[in-house]
Design a protein around this nucleic acid. Structure first.
Length: 476
DNA sequence: GCGATCAGAT
DNA sequence: CACATCTGATCGC
């Protein structure tokens, strides 16, 4: 994670570092200088900082898909060189994380110097890890609905339980899946709160003491879209709408789907399914998508550009079928269009659009297409992060003791954290229980009311020094 | 010199 | 369009 992550990217109260592999913590006091374990939620660039360093040599826990994607990762410059045959071998950015044993001509293997640092853990499978000589944690990976291989981490141990969401899209179906996940059910709050009262009254005990229902110490929350108050369409709704729009065009129309980063696979899959048509991928994207666990994603791609009118090839190196002005994306100069008679290319881009605007947009585009107006670009409201209303619903499911942002804006000196603390105050365990979905209608804390500077929680201020520091101290 | 990190723009 | 990516500047070994 970039600068601005609280606690130097540690998932306190555990000495476990998430999505940050830089060595800039060497100078910090213990235990911040020495993660007992590294976790990787997914392989987007801003979450793998430091991992490309040849000197990085620690074990990293991630999903099987994330491991596959990392080991096959190529930066754009390398992809381009290879595709144009200037470079014979693919240079894998993270090749140093896995070094195969040396094999002698007679078949003997020498393991000196070999390594396999990426520890892939299957989803929904609690797995124990030593974090010291006498302390273990149980870590469970749960799909985060963000991009292939993206997971949340549930960390359980003697210091309590924390949930690190990584980046996630907590749309309605995702919340449902959480309430049905047996590894998360002990931490669900609504029933737990009721049960506590019920049990306490009837049995004369605290429900907490039975160990059946528990409260998360913290949720480390994807705050990329924290300040976006809009309600956005579900991915399914977004793709369905896009498919309706695409269907309005003549079947001779070509489409370029600008999947400029991992996370737009639902669009690709939706198009392939609706039009019974494969999608043209560039070599690199194809190599990734054919090696992930999603069998439908593995199946929808083709390397044959001429075989389909749907293209998701390299953004800055599009194949001739979709490399047509006026949209240029900046990679090339004004090259002449391949002059196929009547050939039209429509460019599809993801955007952040509220539900209301999306309905309006769809109606407008439908009218334009049906009246013969030229439409050469389409938007699809596919959000890969949850905006505030979804985040509040997610947190309300658990009512944890605290929420901690996965990212902060360093330039506002904790104001964003202060605002967040206020926004989520009603969703925590200390506040009065209420329906998990009450926050849908409840307006978020108005950002115009600034919290007092002295009460601002922050990396230094908050409870970090008080109750997290001593918990972290493993010296005794 | 190279790699790592950061700021800025897209 | 976008909060992920690329580029070029800067820092440090």
């Amino acid at each position: 994670m970039p600068n601005g992550t609280p606690y130097h990217s540690f998932a306190l109260p555990y000495p476990i570092r998430v999505d940050n592999f830089t060595s800039t913590i060497d100078d910090l006091p213990a235990p911040y200088n020495r993660p007992a374990l590294h976790l990787l939620t997914h392989t987007h660039t801003d979450h793998i900082a430091g991992l490309a360093s040849k000197s990085f040599a620690y074990r990293v826990v991630c999903s099987p898909d994330a491991k596959e994607m990392l080991l096959r990762h190529e930066v754009y410059a390398e992809r381009s060189l290879h595709d144009h045959e200037y470079r014979a071998d693919k240079k894998r950015t993270f090749g140093h994380l896995k070094i195969e044993p040396y094999v002698m001509p007679n078949g003997d293997k020498f393991y000196t110097g070999s390594r396999d640092l990426l520890h892939a853990v299957p989803l929904n499978t609690p797995t124990e890890f030593d974090i010291s000589d006498d302390e273990t944690v149980t870590i469970t990976l749960i799909d985060a609905n963000h991009c292939p291989g993206a997971v949340m981490f549930l960390i359980e141990g003697s210091r309590g339980s924390v949930l690190h969401t990584g980046d996630l899209r907590a749309e309605p179906w995702f919340l449902s899946s959480i309430t049905r996940n047996p590894f998360l059910q002990p931490y669900l709050a609504d029933s737990a709160e009721d049960l506590r009262v019920f049990v306490a009254r009837r049995e004369g005990t605290h429900a907490e003491a039975t160990g059946l229902v528990r409260t998360l110490e913290a949720i480390y929350l994807d705050t990329a879209c924290l300040l976006s108050p809009v309600v956005v369409p579900s991915k399914e709704h977004a793709v369905q709408g896009l498919v309706e729009l695409v269907a309005l065009f003549p079947s001779s129309t070509y489409f370029f789907i600008n999947s400029w980063t991992w996370g737009y696979e639902d669009v690709l899959k939706g198009i392939a399914r609706a039009f019974h048509c494969k999608i043209h991928f560039d070599r690199y994207k194809h190599s990734i998508y054919t090696h992930v666990s999603d069998p439908f994603l593995r199946a929808i791609g083709t390397r044959d550009a001429s075989s389909t009118r749907f293209h998701a090839c390299e953004r800055f190196d599009r194949c001739s079928f979709v490399d047509v002005p006026p949209y240029d994306f900046g990679a090339k100069g004004a090259t002449a269009p391949p002059s196929k008679d009547g050939m039209r290319v429509v460019y599809v881009n993801a955007a952040t659009i509220s539900c209301a605007r999306w309905e309006n947009y769809k109606a407008t585009v439908k009218r334009q297409v049906l009246t013969g107006e030229t439409v050469d670009s389409l938007l699809v409201p596919l959000s890969r992060h949850s905006p505030l209303p979804e985040l509040m619903n997610l947190v309300s499911l658990f009512r944890p003791k605290r929420v901690i942002p996965n990212t902060l804006d360093p330039s506002v000196n904790g104001l964003d954290w202060g605002a967040m603390a206020r926004m989520f105050a009603g969703c925590l365990s200390s506040s009065k229980p209420r329906s998990a979905f009450a926050s849908v209608t409840a307006p978020p804390c108005p950002l115009t009311s600034h919290p007092s500077i002295t009460t601002l929680p922050g990396p230094i201020g908050l409870s970090s020094r008080v109750d997290l520091g001593h918990i972290l101290d493993t010296s005794e």
